[in-house]
Amino acid sequence: MQRESSAGRRDFLRTSGVLTGLLAAGSPLALFAPSRAWAVDLTTLTSAEGAILLAVCRTIAPHDGLEDAAYAVVVRAIDEQASRDESFAKLIREGLATLGRGFASADEPTRVEALKRIESSPFFQSVRVSTLQTLYTSPLAYAYFGYEGESFSKGGYLTRGFNDLRWLPEVPEEDSGPVPGA
């Protein structure tokens, strides 16, 4: 029993990794971060695996203005899922191994070519879905893309711009309707 648990502990230490970075001065993400330096701990993937995975995520959804910190959140989500699900962890590890260590530092056309070759693989599809599910859900993404999100607590958009577009003509009354309370 004890031997098993200490083996598990060693295994954990061997495989856990960390991703680190520094936010650019004036980054919109700085609004949400306590300091410019950031670090994301990984419990299942190694630092090297995390770096490859981060490059995969950025290639799937390449927003030049979004910093690595935003993609590191995706890596952490995938790492968390991997820590709960052994077969998922295996899928991710093997996929990353296939791409190889050089992937993280390759230029974008090379990374795109490499991913196109595995586009229909369960590995790619899993990472693509995880990237889309996580990347656009964070407050960081809301700020970057200008999305205002939840509106119930603010009384909806009735008085906050649901009809503030002025670069096209107004719709005649017969095809529209009255604004309540206006």
């Binding site: 711009g161 649901f162 009809n163 503030d164 577009l165 096209l168 003509p169 107004e170 719709v171 095809d175 529209s176 309707g177 009255p178 604004v179 309540p180």
Partner: peptide, 13 residues
Amino acid sequence: PGLPASNKFKVMY
């Protein structure tokens, strides 16, 4: 009455 026109409806219209 109809619903009032939103921004995206102005585009469609």
